[in-house]
């Protein structure tokens, strides 16, 4: 899921300085799961806005805020409250914020910073394991992504900063290449070590990404 966190309140305060009445939007998917934009956080935001002398015209937690059509429908259901507001405050990832901003003419204030595509280690602990590079090498690296979990994204083995199998950037973290090497050894295969991996094809990750299912998904 997309891991996000609430922006610093002083930043939000500044962004909202010209707005008196606000409509709040949360997201029931990722932002709820990482406790940044669910019912509870929307409510907390409303309480905080009250302390700032702001009025809230209404709120909604959208099933998946990244779904542009669904967001449009939800906003239509709340059109009067949206109409009354000076701005919408969205507690969703950047994708969700833009679903909203593409559906309304009004000013949209994002309340979260989106950080990464994260795995859940346990409740409240998230780790980035995939960076959506479009050119997956996991089948050769024993299911451990060096593009993401090596701090330098190296493809041909560890850098000179590896110390006792740990990463130079954070000694709490094990070197991704050591983990790949050990797991491949356990599986008795050479995997990625059998070849020199050529430079990555970053054109697969050209932004902005666009993808359409063939035959309309039928």
């Amino acid at each position: 899921m997309i891991i996000s966190e609430l922006k610093p309140l002083d930043e939000l305060q500044l962004a909202l300085s010209a707005c008196d009445k606000l409509f709040l939007v949360g997201c029931a998917a990722c932002a709820t799961a990482c406790k940044a934009g669910g019912e509870e956080e929307v409510f907390k935001l409303q309480e905080w806005l009250a302390t700032q002398g702001k009025e809230v015209s209404g709120s909604v937690v959208i099933d998946e805020a990244c779904h542009i059509m669904r967001a449009a429908r939800e906003l239509r259901h709340h059109r009067n409250a949206v109409q009354e507001a000076d701005a919408l405050v969205v507690l969703a990832c950047g994708s969700g914020i833009q679903s909203i901003s593409s559906n309304v003419e009004k000013r949209v204030v994002g309340g979260l910073n989106s950080m990464f595509l994260g795995n859940v280690r346990r409740f409240g602990h998230y780790e980035e394991m995939c960076s959506l590079c479009g050119d997956c090498i996991l089948n050769e690296t024993a299911g451990i992504c060096p593009v993401t979990t090596c701090a330098k994204g190296l493809l041909n083995g560890p850098c000179g900063g590896m110390e006792d199998g740990r990463c130079e950037v954070d000694e709490e973290i094990e070197c991704a290449w050591r983990l790949i090497y050990e797991r491949l050894q356990k599986q008795r295969r050479q995997g990625v070590f059998a070849r020199r991996v050529p430079p990555k094809n970053w054109s697969r990750r050209r932004q902005p990404g666009r993808y359409r299912l063939k035959n309309g998904g039928r």
Partner: peptide, 29 residues
């Protein structure tokens, strides 16, 4: 031809690191 120390260690830690190639690929280049 080197990978290079991570930007975290230097005086511009906010810079976007590149690492488009690694040292093996740079030698090939």
């Amino acid at each position: 031809l080197l990978s290079g120390d991570h930007g975290k260690f230097g005086d511009h830690p906010d810079a976007r690191p590149v690492f488009d190639l690694d040292s093996v690929q740079m030698l090939d280049m």
